[in-house]
Nucleic acid binder design. Structure first.
Lengths: 201, 201
DNA sequence: CAGTTAATGGAGTGCGCACTCTAGTTATGA
DNA sequence: TCATAACTAGAGTGCGCACTCCATTAACTG
């Protein structure tokens, strides 16, 4: 036997390609980003690219998977917290933070464009499922505590919180005049307003 | 001279193609929708397609322009109304209504994907400008009347209202379990909550 | 009717792309 | 140091696409 794969080196290289692909996807969209351009950005040949990923979509899927893992990791850090509303807001803040990466907005757009692609759709569904499932118990606790509105079903409440984050994300993609710090404060405030129990009456 | 263009017929045909293109863009994205597929949907040959539109993007631009015109038209109907907050909410409701078309969500995604395309970017900028400029005086009046919050600059308030609509739009693209009527009520409520003057203190 | 031009379909074309093949290099185990 | 296999680059390939060209038909004018 000779030259076994060095898992660490392999992983580093993969991440390098992923990073370049993220840059190109964000700038030019999924279809707009040619594998040639990704290779140029990464400083590699196409042979190398396809040595690490069988297909262009597979890079995208790898990025999405990374995102899903990251979300799971976040929720693991929240285990055992007391105030459920704080956890919800922490998640929102966490997402807003991720969107500070200037490529994030463009990437979200790029993903949306190929959301009809079967494998992408599956990945997105899985991501959403992870987030929803992680959020659900906290929302339930918050409802039980009377800390948030109960006029909407819990599932719908969650969907809307995610929708608010999405709205924030689209703004980040819209070029200049966007101060991520100031805006993320508005996002948090907006979510708080959204969650507030309905006025009596 | 012989056979002058019949403007009405020409326009009808254009609209027919536009409609088919909208369907395909929404279902498959901009790049995913081939001109051949659009032609098949429209029941025409490619020669006809390119007789009416010089380029695939031009169909997209035509759709966007239609949308911009429609927005202008809406605001013209609001001239002379009394309650500025009502106008803001009416616009939101109007947008939610447009998004009832099941193709709308997919189309929004498709547009986002090619938002980097120069001509598309220009069209989107113009649309936004029209909407912002139309909304601005109403927001100003609402602020002066103390009917909405003033802790955010007016421009930012407008941007966020549009962002909330965007969040709603993304939900419509996410398949089943989406009751447009119920959700648009939530959207209106959310916008109301967002606009409400900040709590004293 | 004849003359003219819009309208239409569809075969054809050239190009750009994702992906393949291959030859050469590097790192490892025996 | 030799055998083996991972790694790498880049030329090559086939296909799908936007768009063109042309022949035919439809509709109008005089």
């Amino acid at each position: 036997m000779a030259r076994p794969v060095d898992p660490e080196r392999h992983l580093r290289r993969r991440l390098h390609i992923i990073d370049a692909a993220l840059t190109r996807f964000a700038a030019d969209g999924f279809d707009g980003a040619s594998t040639a351009a990704i290779c140029r950005t990464a400083g590699i040949g196409s042979g190398t690219f396809f040595h690490y990923f069988p297909t262009k979509v597979d890079v995208l899927l790898a990025i999405l998977e990374l995102g899903t893992d990251e979300a799971s990791a976040f929720f693991r850090t929240q285990d055992g917290r007391d105030d459920p509303v704080e956890v919800l807001l922490a998640y929102v803040d966490h997402e807003a933070d991720s969107l500070r990466d200037e490529r994030a907005g463009g990437f979200v757009r790029a993903v949306g464009a190929v959301a009809t692609h079967e494998r992408v759709a599956v990945a997105l569904a899985r991501h959403q499922e992870v987030v929803r499932d992680a959020l659900a118990p906290w929302v339930q606790r918050a409802r039980d505590a009377g800390a948030i509105r109960t006029d909407l079903p819990a599932a719908q409440t969650i969907r809307w919180v995610l929708a608010l984050i999405d709205g924030f994300a689209t703004q980040t993609a819209e070029g200049p005049g966007f101060d991520a710090r100031a805006e993320s404060a508005v996002l948090l405030d907006t979510v708080r307003r959204f969650l507030r129990p309905a006025d009596g009456g």
